[in-house]
Design a protein around this nucleic acid. Structure first.
Length: 921
RNA sequence: AGGCUGGUAGCUCAGGGGUAGAGCACUACCUUGACACGGUAGGGGUCAGCGGUUCAAAUCCGCUCCAGCCUACCA
């Protein structure tokens, strides 16, 4: 058999996915037991435009670990894959393509354009799906979905119509976040606040005098110069010809649309001005001075200009005080005809300059401050968002949010880690209505029709629209025009947990798999997606869509920075798969993650994971090369063998394997993937490779086939095979490869039983005895290393103990100890008789001497022993202090006191021995 | 402004009421027939600071300081 010394992932990984996929191992139907528990997850659908990034790799790895684990536990597992049509992203992609051909989507027209998008989707949309196969994801491809599939589209229409009929969807003119870059409205969540260095312009508005005259600007500069700091701050400037009030703004161009000036009703400074009006500079409009709580007395001058058509707060004030709404900035981000002629057609930023210049010229700009503030940017296009009035469709969120809050409060869905519940509550408690219409072409077209008279009919299709018209006694034969807009992409994603299972049809899948068990997702889409899915699930299915929301952390670059294309620090999963092997990357992702916490992905982590994978390969290589007769039998190996009783190492590794099995199952149950990884690492490397394989070598590596040798070979194969099963969810490829080469039951390790904890296989005595062996060997090796004795030089050792069970174990294990520590002869005695020139060591209950005539450096030896002595004395000091404290004896748990006493006695014994040794030197 | 999370070995991080662990890095030795992507043995830490609760605090509770995220209507 030819097995390479170094594991080559590339030679192995490509083989297994096609095998798994073609055999449909990942379909829930694979488990035919009708009573098997069901386990369901839906994948957060990646954008069709996307390709696999590290965030996916982490998110998908975690899901795959769970899916594979549950599948191996014998459950009927469905992990449902699919993609999202990603309205804006996809449309932009195709528009870019068109731009290269020199045409726009409008040149093509809606229908042709959509054809192009579908074409694009067919051609390029599958990239991420094949990358998911490279990662090894055990999804059921027979149930793959796309948010624009016919079935899912029906679900969207159904939900829209029902929400509308329930009064939860309405259409109206409101202030929306308009993206001049994308030429569409966007939701609050799609607005990204960025800190921007700007200016705070202080503008003086003349207050109309009681006699109707206006103060003159000419005297203002003088008045301002004469004013003290307090008067300036107060924002009220007196001149000989009358008074001015000063407003502060970061967006002077919006003043063209001002329809009021506001102050706080509690503001003593301006009480006297109640009922007065001001005249808007540059425009000449007469503005009322209104009073509103929202105005902060402390900020700026305490006066706020009110532009109801271009600011969310001002919009609210406009509604409260019945102010006119004047849109001075249009959808093209240019000044409209509602503004004075001079500014019309100017871009908003050009207009800002013009307005500032004109105010300055008029002497009304009293002050300019540098000012850093947050400005909303369009998440997709990066342009500054323009709040403006527009007719859009909205979902009324409060009535939907209430049950969603209740459900989580009642624990019907829990977050892991749980602190995300607070974030969820906080958002839902303060939720605003959701603008769902988008001025795009790619997406679910809004199922609303308009009659020539302007009536609106919401219906599943045009035929139903006519029916509904008829039902209300209207003419149903008129020409109907469907709404041009499409729905926000998240409108369809929020239905994903049930639309993918066939809803609104009452399918078997829906019955079997809803609600799903776990949703694994990143924290940035809790609001976009998770909260909305819970609302929709409750509304349309009457049940939460998932029992658990596991929030995975963010994968950062090696420096701990967010990965971003602009920074150029993105690590491509495919590149590292190629470099380190997919199993290694999966393992390092699982090992690095703690729920909800971000982590830096460092090269070293993948290197160490790759080394671990290689270690597994080589341990298996050793077994494959040396256990011929067991492997040839092709019978799955049993632990119990008539050939020979298990020896200490056997009983010990079985016990350790079981403890590990218990810990791994428990950690998986609790979503503690880093713990799973760590436990398996140490079991496999430290226990299995470093001790068990080493102890088994004389039997396994011997060319002879004796009953005893065969029994040991069977047991090593047994432990390896079980270890592979434990490792499989983390490392599907190498475990399948190796498992197939071992005697096994079944077609694939994917469907093999995941080991379960069996208390009967724990063996505390074996663990205790092995610890003694390990301690003796380690002490002997330590002596060899300290005195620089070449491995080829055999040692003599004397071990003194008065503990009968200890001497029994050491005597019984004499051969392995001699071999592992490279000792020629061990004398087990009651008291050391070795001569003065010996290196010595103490361990609980025993002491060791290695005669090293001539080789020993007494100072070095004294230093080494003193070092140990200091450590032990320190520990004993602490213990004695504790034990002499009556409160400790009285209040600490009995077993803690007992343990402390035992440990103290043990330390006293060792210290006495050490002291004697040092003196003897 | 509020909220959340973190500050533990040189680095990256586990742990979490009974005086500390891993990986990498470091030091010394070792090409021993699975593996140098390896083996053996080591060195290295007032667990951010200050108070409190407790017999006992790195761990629980306050406050402070740093770092990072999220939310918010301060024009």
């Amino acid at each position: 058999m030819d097995i390479p010394k170094t594991y080559e992932p590339k030679d192995v990984e490509g083989r297994w996915y096609p095998f798994w996929e073609s055999h449909h191992f990942f379909a829930p139907e694979t488990q035919t037991d009708p009573n098997a528990p069901v386990f369901t997850m839906v994948i957060p659908p990646p954008n069709v435009t996307g390709s696999l990034h590290m965030g996916h790799a982490l998110n998908h790895t975690i899901q795959d670990v769970m899916a594979r684990w549950h599948r191996m536990l014998g459950e009927r597992v469905l992990w449902l894959p699919g993609t999202d049509h990603a309205g804006i992203a996809t449309q932009m992609m195709v528009e870019k393509q068109l731009a290269q051909e020199g045409i726009s989507r409008r040149d093509l027209g809606r229908e042709k354009f959509l054809e192009r998008v579908w074409q694009w989707k067919e051609q390029y949309g599958g990239a991420i799906l094949s990358q998911m196969r490279i990662l090894g994801e055990s999804v059921d491809w027979s149930r793959e979905r796309f948010t624009m599939d016919e079935g899912l589209s029906n679900a969207v229409k159904e939900v829209f119509v029902r929400l509308f009929d329930d009064g939860l969807i309405y259409r109206g003119e409101y202030l929306v976040n308009w993206s001049p870059g994308l030429q569409t409205a966007i939701s609050d969540l799609e607005v990204e606040m960025k800190q921007v260095k700007g200016r705070l312009w202080h503008i003086a508005y003349p207050i109309r005098n009681a006699d109707g005259s206006l103060p003159e600007a000419a005297s203002l500069a003088e008045a301002y110069a004469a004013a003290n700091e307090g008067e300036r701050k107060s924002g009220l400037l007196h001149t000989e010809t009358g008074d001015f009030l000063v407003v502060a703004t970061t967006r002077p161009e919006t003043m063209l649309g001002d329809t009021a000036v506001a102050m706080n009703p509690e503001d003593e400074r301006y009480r006297a001005l109640a009922g007065r009006t001001v005249v808007l500079p540059l425009v000449g409009r007469e503005l009322p001075l209104i009073q509103d709580e929202i105005v902060e007395k402390e900020f700026g001058t305490g006066f706020v200009k009110v532009t109801p058509a271009h600011d969310p707060n001002d919009f609210a004030m406009g509604k409260r005080h019945n102010l006119p709404f004047i849109s001075v900035i249009g959808k093209d981000a240019k000044i409209t005809a509602a503004a004075p002629e001079k500014y019309r057609g100017l871009d908003r930023f050009e207009a800002r300059k013009a307005v500032v210049a004109d105010l300055e010229a008029a002497g009304l700009l009293v002050r300019i401050e540098d000012y850093t503030h947050n400005v909303g940017h369009c998440q997709r296009s990066g342009v500054v968002v323009e709040p403006l009035l527009s007719t859009q469709w909205f979902v009324r969120m409060k009535p939907l949010a209430e049950p969603a809050l209740e459900a989580v409060r009642a624990g019907r869905t829990i977050f892991v880690p749980e602190n995300f519940t607070k974030i969820y509550y906080n958002w839902l408690e303060n939720i605003e209505d959701w603008c769902i219409s988008r001025q795009l072409w790619w997406g679910h077209r809004i199922p609303a029709w308009y009659t020539p008279d302007g009536d609106i009919v919401v219906a599943r299709d045009e035929a139903e629209a006519r029916e509904r018209l008829r039902a209300t006694g209207k003419d149903a034969s008129v020409a109907l025009r469907q709404d041009e807009d499409v729905l926000d992409t998240w409108f369809s994603s929020q239905l994903w947990p049930f639309s993918t299972l066939g809803w609104p049809e009452q399918t078997e899948d829906l019955k079997n798999h809803y609600p799903t068990d776990v949703l694994v997702t990143a924290q940035d889409i809790i609001f976009f997606w998770v909260a909305r899915m819970i609302m929709m699930g409750l509304k349309f299915m009457g049940e939460v869509p998932f029992r658990v929301v596991y929030i995975n952390g963010l994968v950062l670059d090696p420096e701990g920075q967010k990965m971003s294309k602009t920074k150029g620090n993105v690590i491509d999963p495919l590149v590292v798969f190629d470099k380190y092997g997919t199993d290694a990357v999966r393992y390092s992702l699982a090992a690095a993650t703690s729920a909800g916490l971000s982590f830096a992905l460092q090269e070293e982590k993948m290197v160490s994971a790759r080394n671990f994978v290689n270690k597994i390969w080589n341990a298996a290589r050793f077994v494959l090369l040396n256990c011929g007769e067991v492997l040839d039998a092709q019978q799955p190996v049993e632990w119990e063998s008539e050939l020979a009783e298990p020896m200490l190492a056997d009983r010990w590794i079985l016990s350790r394997l079981n403890r590990t099995t218990q810990e791994v199952n428990e950690a998986l149950q609790n979503y503690r993937f880093h713990e799973v990884a760590a436990k398996l690492y140490h079991f496999f490397w430290d226990d299995f490779c470093d001790w068990y394989i080493e102890l088994s070598k004389p039997f396994v590596a011997s060319p002879e086939i004796t009953p005893e040798n065969t029994a040991v070979r069977q047991r090593i194969v047994y432990v390896l095979e079980r270890s592979l099963r434990l490792l499989h969810p983390l490392m599907p490829f190498i475990t399948e490869e190796l498992w197939q080469r071992l005697p096994h039951r079944g077609e694939t390790i994917c469907l093999a039983d995941f080991p379960r904890f069996d208390a009967a296989q724990l063996d505390e005595r074996a663990e205790r005895e092995m610890n003694t062996l390990i301690e003796v060997v380690t002490k002997l090796r330590n002596i060899r290393a300290t005195f620089n004795i070449a491995p080829s030089v055999p040692l003599q050792a004397e071990i003194a103990t008065t503990d009968a069970s200890l001497s029994e174990v050491i005597t019984r294990m004499e051969e392995p100890i001699k071999r592992l520590a490279r000792v020629a002869e061990i004398k087990v005695v009651n008291a050391l008789s070795a001569q003065r020139g010996s290196a010595r060591a103490v361990m609980p209950g025993a002491e060791i001497a290695v005669p090293l005539s001539g080789l020993i450096d007494f100072d070095k030896e004294r230093a080494r022993l003193s070092n140990t002595l200091t450590k032990l004395t320190g520990e004993l000091g602490g213990l004695e202090k504790r034990l002499s404290n009556p409160d400790f004896i009285a209040r600490a748990a009995a077993d803690v006191v007992e343990q402390s006493r035992e440990r103290a006695a043990e330390l006293q014994d060792q210290i006495a021995r050490l002291k004697a040794m040092i003196e003897a030197l």
